[in-house]
């Protein structure tokens, strides 16, 4: 069971979310993210797991009419990042995200990784060089990319592009990293690379990952949440969820009886 001493990095409290038009996509979700752990979100498509993930960096603010209710509190400073006064940009500087499909910018490999730093006004060449190298190493892309840093990012393979996006997200030293089905567009070898990478990354930061693939959740995550129709059905450490789920619905989903 969950050890009560593990520090919490962030937690959602009674989080409700309404899409423009009134669709009630999240229903009172309360859940912690433990520091330096990987938390996986699983559930059938449309269950709200991506919606939940995208609340953490206020991605829904990009589209008019979406509405949050409840709190997502970040520790240790106890900031409710959903509060009106909190700028979504500030939130996104602390919490970075890797998307379902690799989405590099139409820039060089170097500039892709440096983007977050440039956005923060950092233009010192030495500093940028160091940070780009560090991030590329952290994303296990340095060896493949170090001789072609000025190449267009589109010239990389799909798996490399996704690692580039991880490097991009890593370069700004985020506290939390969100992964929205990061391997769904990749082949098995690239997928294995990314999973390995995530396990290494958790030394440094906290990870929330949405996945369609239950084996993946079982392989990489420390904690797993099962969501269904916008509700959090069950949350526990991954071992428990996959071996002794307390709810019938969770078991049905995990054993493939439905979903």
């Amino acid at each position: 069971m969950i050890k009560p001493t593990t520090p919490i990095k962030a937690e959602s409290r009674n989080l409700n979310f309404f899409y423009n038009g009134g669709n009630h996509a999240l229903k009172s979700v309360s859940m912690p993210l433990y520091e330096n752990k990987i938390t996986a979100l699983i559930g059938p498509s449309g269950c709200g797991k991506s919606t939940f993930l995208r609340c953490f960096n206020r991605m829904h603010d990009l589209y008019p009419g979406n509405k949050y209710q409840g709190e997502i509190v970040m520790h240790p400073d106890n900031t409710n990042i959903l509060e009106q006064g909190v700028d979504p940009i500030e939130v996104r500087m602390r919490i970075s995200m890797v998307f379902q499909k690799p989405n590099p910018f139409p820039k060089s490999i170097y500039e892709n990784v440096a983007y977050g730093l440039r956005v923060r006004g950092e233009n010192n060449k030495r500093m940028l060089d160091d940070k780009v190298e560090e991030a590329l190493k952290g994303a296990a892309l340095w060896n493949e990319a170090k001789d072609r840093l000025q190449d267009l990012a589109f010239n990389l393979s799909g798996g490399q592009q996704q690692r580039l996006c991880i490097a991009r997200a890593l370069a700004t030293d985020p506290e939390i990293m969100l992964f929205d089905e990061p391997t769904s567009a990749l082949d098995p070898i690239a997928t294995a690379n990314i999973e390995e990478l995530m396990s290494e990354l958790k030394q440094k930061l906290t990870i929330l990952v949405v996945t369609h693939n239950m084996q993946q959740a079982a392989r990489v995550s420390d904690y797993t949440a099962y969501m269904y129709l916008g509700e959090l059905m069950e949350y526990d450490d991954t071992n428990t969820i996959f071996t002794r789920p307390s709810r019938k619905e969770t078991e049905d989903y995990i054993t493939g009886k439905f979903g």
């Binding site: 001493t5 520090p7 509190v73 520790h75 409710n80 509060e83 940009i89 923060r120």
Partner: peptide, 30 residues
């Protein structure tokens, strides 16, 4: 905000919080 802390939290990583003021000023500029 309602602070209803049930779990103990370690001291903040100094860098992140010290910078928060700076970060806010920068966002304002941008």
């Amino acid at each position: 905000m309602s602070t209803n802390m049930t779990t103990e939290t370690p001291p903040a990583p100094a860098s992140a919080l010290k910078n928060l003021g700076e970060v806010r000023a920068m966002i304002k500029r941008h």
